[in-house]
Design a protein around this nucleic acid. Structure first.
Lengths: 207, 207
DNA sequence: TTGTCGGCCGATCGCCGACAA
DNA sequence: TTGTCGGCGATCGGCCGACAA
């Protein structure tokens, strides 16, 4: 799973703890989340309100069926001694730095579009917003009458998708034609869904 | 879920305990089955080799995606005292009678066919074996040149499917045409799968 | 700038008997 | 008796500009 694509899908509000850092884990909240019980419901056992944990691993995933992104954070509880020292500030807990800070230098071009009825119908292809095509797609040879090229994109699972990108019509516009409908069908996209394209690892996906 | 259809799918070797009867439950076998561990693997706790249980409930189900049938049997452990009496024959345990004995009087007509390449291809419809059509389908008006009718069937989930049943060709034969391909697609049927039709609650399904 | 539409053409679906296994 | 095929018409998919929001 591409790091950039994963974060593009998760959105700017999502930050993940660094591996090796120390975090505070709230079992009560976790239990309520996974068990789908109301907050009024009681936990099956006596849960401590919070536990100091070391982040053993962070893995990025995407649902196979829906492309929904999520992260798997492996936690190892700290000993009570270590916990005490942490509270007194005697050990460095690595704080709140995000794991992706190193990747920030290569901010990739991207765009996101909510699909219209025309985009998802069987009647035609995908209308590419002008700015988006110019920012994110390789430039076309505009000297030709109907400039076109083949785009290759990878989704969250690394699967390849090929689209014909053409610039045509009066007035001129960018379109994805051949290959687009297959993508819509396989990803079960409907009007109102959004697609997100990322430059270089030029990548569309259902959002 | 139709009782008859469920048993037609499960096959004649499957019999279910009656509600209220007493059965012997083998936790070890259950554990190996659900955990997918090899027989060599050890259980997580000390399991008793067998437990006398009262059948609290029996529910028939079918997988939403595959139409695979299964039963959910709710068990309540018997007290040691009752267990002892049962072993000594002092209490009636209701034995091995099947829950469906009462339904045997109305043995419904049915047929099962393994799908051929032609049955599942997009080129045409479904060839109905002659005997099957005569046994299980409502009779046609053979005075007409191309007798036909609409069949309405329900699958394991109670969903309705409509098929055009026609008797035509040289030599004459029974076919399901309009509606058949939709069924093949939705149930993801391929050559080698089987369909099962049951009269009255005239019911096809993927097997 | 771009969402929807009519036009158009080719691909596929799906109904029909003809065969032959 | 029934599985596969060639045939064909109807439908649908999908590429094109026209047009207007």
């Amino acid at each position: 799973v591409s790091l950039e694509l994963w974060h593009a899908c998760a959105g700017p509000l999502i930050s993940l703890p660094k591996r090796g850092s120390v975090v505070v884990y709230f079992p009560q909240g976790h239990f309520e989340h996974v068990s789908d019980y109301s907050a009024a419901s009681s936990a099956p056992f006596d849960l401590p309100p919070h536990v100091f944990c070391r982040v053993a691993d962070v893995k990025l995933h995407a649902e196979a069926a829906s492309d929904e992104v999520y992260a798997q954070v492996s936690l190892v509880p700290e000993t009570e001694q270590t916990e005490k020292k942490l509270l007194e500030g005697k050990i460095e807990g690595h704080g709140e730095e995000d794991v992706e800070v190193a990747a920030k230098s290569s901010t990739p071009h991207m765009f996101c579009k909510t699909l219209t009825a025309s985009d998802t119908s069987t009647h035609g292809g995908f209308s590419v917003p002008r700015r988006a095509a110019e920012d994110c797609f390789p430039p076309l040879d505009y000297s030709q009458q109907r400039p076109s090229q083949e785009l290759v994109a990878k989704d969250l699972h690394g699967l390849e998708w090929r689209f014909r990108h053409i610039y045509r019509g009066q007035p001129r516009r960018h379109l994805l034609t051949t290959g687009w409908s297959a993508f819509v069908n396989k990803k079960k996209l409907v009007s109102g869904d959004a697609v997100l394209f990322l430059r270089y690892e030029l990548t569309p996906l259902k959002y």
